[in-house]
Write a protein that binds this DNA or RNA. Structure first.
Length: 798
DNA sequence: AACATCGCCTTTTTT
DNA sequence: AGGCGATGTT
């Protein structure tokens, strides 16, 4: 509301100083050190610009400097620049860097943010324009996340008597998201797609939208969709925003979906100063609605657009770049870029095959220890923070976690379950939501019987009936049901208490004098929610209590509960604590935008990578997106990239053998070194290679590049030169591991640290750690203060 | 209403 | 394998 006034006031106040500085004829120091292309990108301010920025070419630098330049030249005040990113992280980084460039002289960039956060701001101003004569959105709408969305859809599905087993809510949610991504309201869904979801998809979509309006709620897709619909239906509103945004900048343009594209195009039609930055080769989100076509079509959409290419790479060595470029060259319909670098040649990409996924994890673990210890290559001693493992699918992480756990190698998984998605956090948030808006039925349903109050499905049904009949929210309906005596026994008492408590909490939430952190604590304590976890004996209960404490602490940064709730709805970020040295493990998707000196790329096997499903569902398009994913992975590496594949991998509990990825064949030979694998038995890779080579689906010829490469031959030769494996008694490491320990032994555990064994039961140890007694599987600890009993492949007869 | 068991499905992920 | 959800059992 007052946002506009604030910004205008701010602009008026800041204008003189900015234009004064623009008057000064002296050179702008923030432009120093830009290469010619970057400089062009910064200084081409008028008209549409497409900035094709390859991996590691200083894209963010160009973008932030461009913003700084706009401000310093007096072209625009901060409030007139729209800068859009996809993630909160990117938005944060951009804000920080602009501030740094300008020496903190510019306070805020109110319109620098994610598509969604900016859409919320716009939508709050015009909420009433969404809906029809009878029902419309109100500015205080709540934003539902995926979880709420699914639960809502389930209700609608069961109301329609649809068998949710045959037609899962997830599928419907995906369908609706897909439509919203393409800016389709129920009325605009093309007839050809109306057969979806047993022919009832569109009707359910309409019902869902109706229900959202009743709840005064929107989902993530709506944030964009509603904005687009408002812009299209209300030219006056659109004109106002077009006028405001004199300059528009878009990051990661290749990831925009149709709705975002329309949103941008509508806004940009005002001043036509739009600068889109992207890289068609890094488009990896097609499966969630991104349209590479948007970037490929840019010049057609914005006639007279200038296309600027950033091609000098500041990140990777020539070998890495050449390998990545060679790989991506197999894709069709690219805009085309040629990355080059002045960096030292460095080491070739390394390629290695393993017998199975466990051997792969073992080998990578050893490599990392070698790098960390400093006894390997010209690479020198390395921090674990310099090393990343990038996998295609998250289930691959497990092998690494297991292995690193046993050898005590610190690691962290990036992009794991997010803080605000944890059950206890979502429960607590539901309590807060209900306190702030007593009409939030989804929040009510979530917590009404958590902790247990004796209110099962039957009681909930009664409440729902009561609410529906009287046109009340569930919380009000619950009060009515109690008054009417429709409930009895334990449930009635519990519900009565809850209703009373929420009434008090709501009053306090509205009282600006009351401390909202105190209120939050009281809510969790008085409702018995904290107590529920205190009484819970499961091993993760203490962690959950910690998380609740952290949640309350996070509240301190906000003025009130409302502000906090809005923040969390849009910024589902884990509060990042600075950690000690750790190897990073993440998916290739999560790695986009990051860089590491040393990168491991395991699991390059056909079916896993490229993913079979991707190819089945999207054919050549899918394969090309997978290839871009490989390109993204390779270009994360600064100094050394190591690709590996395993002949056998456990998938869904079943061992499956597989073939090296077709992407391996596409790597230019000259830039790849094929390593001698640490054979399963005395390095005999010939045997390990068998399953790859003998498949009827893929004959050897298709892997000629690899198998005929010098490295490969050398490897085979060495294997042949070795004496036949000697079968020794197996050194069994996992059976009865507890036998390795005795009561009183000092042991080390990755998470809990060093402790003393207090008890042994089969493979389960009870250990006193600094943090208290824990019961852990023996596999996860190792003797303290001595090196892990490292099992080299040679020790394990096959 | 709370707990146990069975069967199903399984990429990638942000907001 | 394993996690989840929907059933069946106490």
């Amino acid at each position: 509301m007052s946002q506009f006034d604030d910004h205008d006031a701010f602009e008026a106040a800041s204008r003189p100083s900015l234009s004064q500085r623009a008057m000064a004829p002296r050179p702008s120091p923030y432009l120093d050190g830009l290469n010619p292309a970057q400089r062009l990108a910064v200084e081409t301010l008028d008209g549409p610009v497409l900035l094709l920025a390859g991996a590691g070419t200083g894209k963010t630098r160009a973008l932030t400097t461009r913003i700084a330049h706009l401000l310093m030249q007096g072209r625009a005040t901060p409030g007139r620049i729209l800068a859009v990113t996809f993630t909160n992280k990117a938005a944060r980084e951009m804000k920080d860097r602009v501030a740094r460039l300008l020496g903190e002289t510019v306070e805020g960039m109110p319109w620098l943010g994610t598509f969604h956060s900016i859409s919320v701001k716009i939508l709050r101003r015009h909420a009433e324009l969404v809906g029809d004569g009878t029902l419309h959105l109100k500015p205080g709408f709540t934003i539902l996340d995926t979880d709420d969305q699914i639960r809502l859809l389930k209700q609608l599905i069961s109301a329609e008597n649809i068998d949710e087993k045959r037609w899962p809510a997830r599928q419907l949610a995906g369908l609706i998201d897909g439509w919203k991504n393409r800016a389709m309201t129920p009325a605009r869904v093309p007839a050809g797609e109306s057969h979806a979801y047993d022919g009832r998809g569109v009707a359910l979509y309409a019902a869902y939208q109706r229900r959202l309006l009743e709840l005064n709620a929107v989902d993530f897709g709506d944030l964009l969709l509603h904005c687009v619909m408002i812009f299209q239906a209300h030219p006056d509103v659109l004109a106002q925003w077009q006028e405001r945004f004199r300059y528009i900048l878009v990051d990661e343009y290749q990831d925009t979906n149709v709705a975002q594209y329309l949103w941008l195009r509508l806004l940009a039609q005002g001043h036509r100063n739009i600068c889109c930055v992207g890289d068609d080769d890094q488009s990896i989100y097609g499966w969630r609605g991104a349209e590479v076509g948007n970037i490929l079509r840019f010049e057609g959409d914005f006639p007279g657009a200038q296309v600027i290419r950033l091609e000098q790479n500041y990140r990777s060595t020539p070998h890495i770049l050449a390998a990545a470029s060679g790989l991506i060259a197999a894709n069709k319909g690219r805009l085309g870029k040629e990355l080059w670098t002045e960096a030292e040649e460095g080491e070739k990409i390394r390629l290695i095959g393993h017998w199975d996924s466990e051997a792969e994890a073992r080998w990578i673990g050893e490599e990392i220890e070698a790098f960390h210890g400093g006894h390997r290559h010209s690479i020198g001693q390395r921090s674990l923070n310099d090393i990343a493992i990038l996998v295609r699918a998250s289930h691959q992480m497990r092998a690494f976690e297991d292995r690193f756990m046993t050898i005590g190698l610190p690691y962290r998984v990036i992009g794991g379950p997010r803080f605000y998605e944890r059950q206890e956090i979502r429960d607590a948030m539901a309590y807060f939501r209900l306190a702030v808006s007593p009409t939030d039925d989804l929040a009510f349903e979530r917590i009404v019987n958590t902790p247990r109050r004796g209110l099962g499905p039957k009681a909930l049904q009664t409440i729902q009936r009561e609410s529906r009949d009287r046109g009340l929210s569930l919380l009000q309906g619950a009060a009515a049901a109690l008054a009417a005596g429709a409930l009895s026994g334990k449930g009635a008492a519990g519900l009565r208490q809850l209703v009373e408590q929420m009434g008090r909490f709501h009053a306090d939430a509205l009282d600006s004098r009351a401390s909202h952190t105190d209120l939050a604590e009281r809510i969790l304590d008085e409702t018995g929610y904290t107590e529920m976890w205190q009484n819970e004996k499961s091993p993760d209960a203490p962690g959950r209590l910690d998380n609740l404490k952290e949640l309350v602490k996070a509240l301190e940064e906000f003025d009130n509960l409302q502000g906090f709730l809005e923040h969390v709805a849009l910024v589902m970020d884990t509060p990042e604590g600075e950690q000690a040295e750790e190897v990073s493990i993440m998916t290739l998707h999560a790695a986009k935008g990051l860089e590491y000196p040393i990168v491991f790329l395991p699991g390059w096997e056909d079916g896993l990578f490229p993913s079979q499903r991707s190819m089945d569902e999207s054919g050549l398009k899918g394969l090309e997106e997978e290839r871009r994913l490989a390109y993204v992975g390779l270009t994360r590496a600064e100094e050394l990239a190591t690709i590996s594949f395993a002949g056998n991998r456990r998938l869904y509990g079943q061992w499956q053998s597989s073939l090296p990825s077709r992407f391996i064949d596409e790597l230019p030979e000259d830039h790849v070194e094929v390593l001698t694998p640490p054979g399963l038995y005395n390095g005999g890779f010939g045997a390990a290679a068998q399953p790859f080579a003998q498949s009827s689906m893929h004959d050897r010829a298709s892997h000629a590049d690899v198998y005929n490469s010098p490295g490969w031959k050398r490897m085979q030769d060495r294997a042949a030169a070795r004496p036949a494996p000697v079968h020794r008694a197996p050194i069994i490491i996992d059976a009865e591991p507890a036998a390795r320990f005795a009561v009183g032994d000092r042991v080390f555990h990755q998470k809990f640290g060093t402790g003393s064994i207090m008890g042994i039961a089969e493979d389960t140890l009870t250990i006193q750690f600094p943090a208290g007694f824990k019961t852990v599987k023996a596999n996860y600890v190792q003797p303290a203060a001595t090196a892990a009993p490292d099992v080299t492949p040679d020790d394990v007869p096959f």
